[in-house]
Simulated scan of single mutants.
Amino acid sequence: MEFEGIHHIAIIGHDLKRTLDFYVTKLDFEIIAQHRRESKGDIKIDLQKNGLMLEVFIKANAPARSTYPEGEACGLRHLAFTVLDVDKAVKRLNQLGIPTEPVRRDDFTHKKMTFFFDPDGLPLEVHE
Rank of each mutant, 00 (worst) to 15 (best):
M1S: 13
F3K: 02
E4P: 04
G5P: 06
A10I: 12
I11G: 10
G13R: 07
G13Y: 05
L16Y: 04
R18I: 11
L20P: 08
T25G: 12
K26D: 05
D28V: 08
F29A: 04
E30L: 06
I31W: 00
I32T: 08
G41I: 01
G41P: 00
D46C: 09
D46E: 09
K49D: 03
N50W: 04
G51P: 08
L52N: 02
V56F: 08
F57K: 07
I58Y: 05
I58T: 04
A60K: 05
N61F: 06
A62P: 04
A64I: 07
R65D: 07
S66A: 01
P69I: 04
P69N: 09
P69Q: 01
E70V: 13
E70H: 08
C74P: 11
C74K: 13
L76M: 15
R77P: 08
F81W: 11
F81G: 13
T82V: 12
L84I: 09
D85R: 07
V86T: 11
K88T: 15
A89M: 11
K91R: 13
L96G: 13
G97E: 09
E101F: 07
R104N: 13
D106K: 01
H110Q: 04
H110F: 05
K111C: 05
K112A: 08
M113W: 14
M113A: 06
M113G: 02
F116E: 02
F116R: 00
D118S: 13
P119S: 00
D120E: 03
G121T: 12
L122V: 11
L122K: 02
P123W: 12
L124F: 01
L124W: 01
E125Y: 08
V126L: 03
H127G: 10
H127E: 06
E128Q: 12
E128I: 15
